[in-house]
Structures are given as C-alpha cells and as structure tokens.
Amino acid sequence: MSATKRIVVFGGNGFLGSRICRAAVARNWDVTSVSRSGRPNWLSITSSPTPPNWSHSVSWERGDIFRPTQWTSLLYGADYVVHSLGILLEADYKGVISGRESPISGLARAFSASKGAGAANPLERVREQGAPEPGLEPPSSEAQLTYEMMNRDSAILLAKEAAKEGVKAFGFVSAAAGAPVLPSRYVTTKREAEAVVAREFPEMRGVFFRPPFMYDRSRGATMGVAAVATVGSVVDGLTGGKLGGLLGSMVTKPLKADVVADAVVEALADESVKGPVEVPQLEQLAERAWRKTML
C-alpha cells in the first residue's frame, strides 16, 4: 500500500481553495489549509453556515503568507503545496470604508499600467529582507494589497520555501488570459510568478492552473456571469473565434469551482503533468478524476 500523500493548501479556506481541500480529502490525503483566518466562514463559500463533514479531516491553520516562520514547519513532509491566494481588484478597503479613499481612486490605481514597488526582482527582494524574519514586508493597515504582492511575490516566496523542504510538486492557481473586465496586471503578475517559479526551482514540478471564470450555486452572483460567458463561448465557436479577439476570456467556457478543484488534485497526483494547464486540460483532468470515483 502506498503512503498517504500530504498536501498543504495556502488559501484553503477560500472559494476554490476549500474545494481543493475537499477533493484531496476525498482521496484520503493528509490535508492542511493555511490562511490568515484559519477556519472558513462557510456561509461565504458554500450555501450553508454548517461545516461539511469532510472539513473535519482538514487541519485549519493560521499563518500570514508574508511571514514564513509562521508556516514553514507545516511544509515538512508535504508532497504537494498549492498557492490559491490572490486578489481580483486592488483596493484599500479599509480606506474606502473610513472615507480616506474613494472607490473611484482605488479602481484608478488598480487599472494603472504598473506599480513602482513591483519593478524589482521579487526573488531578490525576498533574499534581501534578511533577519530577524526572512520574507517580504507584509502590507500594513495603511497599505493596499497589490497584484505584485498577492498574485506574484507571495507565490514566489511560498515556492522558495517549498523547494527548500523538498516538496515534489507546487501548484499555482493562475488565470486564463484576456479578461477585459480586469486590469491587465492581474494576469501579467500571475504569468510573472509562473515564469520565476519554473526558472528558479526546476527540481520541483511546477503546475500552473489557468482557470476561466468559476461559478457555484452557493454564490448566486456567479451564476449569471457564468451564463453570459457560456453563451459567449458558444457564439465564439460559431464565429470561428472572432468574438474571443474582442472579449478575451469572457468567451472562454466557465467552469464550476468543483471541476477546477478536482482537476488540481488530479494534476498534482499525475507526475506527467507540469507547466501551464489551460481550460481544456482542466476539463480532461476533472473528468478523469470523476471516472476514478466510478471504478
């Protein structure tokens, strides 16, 4: 009998991360979730405030991704590490709520072409941080989270520590390209993370998942967007892909969050899967995972 696999999911209490944990539990893996808040707020990611039965098999740990000393011990003996953290739009939410910043100015910064702090090599910034606690300087209560910090630098920092611990595979939840409703930096920072992880840690199998828009009935707002995107994907197919040139990933077939989660776990378990995993392969991996449950 093969040894039980061990997976650590950063952002495991989120919309997709919690479902990755669920899929891993279904395979009888040893599952640990790491997030700043620990246990999920179930009503925010499912249709019920009651923890599902599978959640009792997960170790829900607290840890700040920018403070490695809080979580590096959790990587010991892990086969797989997953980065499922990120932000869709930059905003100083506390600033907006308190009146220090308007929502318009927050969005204007999000759609700016670049951030000055993001110009430096993120790995060099990790190395230069030094004592007393190695890592990247976390955002203060006054600072807004940026794409560079959350979508890129936090992933590189986690990959660096995972490689040091000899983790076999590093899963990074990236994104399908071309969504017109999000700033271009949302995707470019994801791609930068992919490139650095692949280049700097070749001994660790990097798997970069590029899901489209994800939906679930527990989040009613996602259903309407998914319906529009589904129609767009059908029309795009009928027009030979011409619509996709205008609307980008908004005409990419959306996927249910559970499907993406199943694909993530299946890909990590398959040593032949590495590098970018696009939407068609996500569907194939999820179907393969489903067929295994039917045996």
Rank of each mutant, 00 (worst) to 15 (best):
M1F: 08
M1D: 06
M1E: 09
S2Y: 11
A3L: 15
T4H: 07
I7A: 12
I7M: 10
I7H: 12
V8L: 00
G11D: 06
G12L: 08
F15V: 02
G17N: 08
S18Y: 10
I20Y: 07
I20H: 06
A24C: 11
V25Y: 04
R27L: 03
R27Q: 12
W29Y: 10
W29C: 00
V31A: 07
T32H: 09
V34A: 02
V34S: 00
S35N: 07
R36V: 08
R36G: 07
R36Q: 11
G38Q: 02
N41T: 03
N41R: 14
W42N: 11
S44Y: 04
T46C: 05
S47W: 03
S48T: 14
S48C: 01
T50D: 12
P51H: 05
W54F: 15
S57L: 07
V58A: 06
S59W: 00
W60L: 00
P68E: 07
T72W: 03
S73W: 00
L75N: 04
Y76S: 00
Y80G: 07
S84F: 06
L88W: 12
L88V: 14
D92T: 04
K94D: 11
S98L: 14
P103L: 04
S105D: 15
L107T: 01
A108D: 13
A110F: 03
A113F: 04
A113I: 13
G116R: 14
G116D: 10
A119V: 08
R125K: 15
R127N: 13
G130H: 08
A131R: 09
A131F: 09
E133G: 10
P134C: 04
G135N: 07
G135F: 10
L136A: 06
A143H: 00
Q144N: 11
Y147S: 05
S154L: 07
S154R: 08
A159T: 01
A163V: 10
K164D: 01
V167Q: 05
F170L: 04
F170A: 00
A175I: 14
A179N: 12
P180W: 12
P183L: 06
R185F: 01
V187N: 09
V187W: 06
K190E: 05
R191A: 03
R191V: 08
E192G: 10
A193T: 02
A198Q: 15
R199E: 12
P202A: 03
R210A: 02
R217S: 03
A221Q: 15
T222M: 06
M223C: 03
A229K: 01
T230S: 15
V231C: 11
G232E: 05
S233W: 11
V235G: 02
V235Q: 04
G237K: 13
G240N: 04
K242G: 02
K242F: 10
L243F: 07
G244D: 00
G245R: 15
L246R: 14
L246A: 13
L246Q: 11
G248L: 13
G248N: 13
G248D: 10
S249A: 12
M250Y: 10
M250W: 11
L255Y: 04
K256R: 14
K256V: 09
A257G: 10
A257P: 05
A263S: 05
L268P: 01
L268W: 00
L268E: 01
K274A: 14
P276Y: 04
V277H: 07
V279R: 09
V279S: 05
Q281C: 01
E283H: 04
E283C: 09
E283A: 03
A286H: 06
R288P: 01
R291H: 14
L295I: 09
L295N: 09
L295V: 13
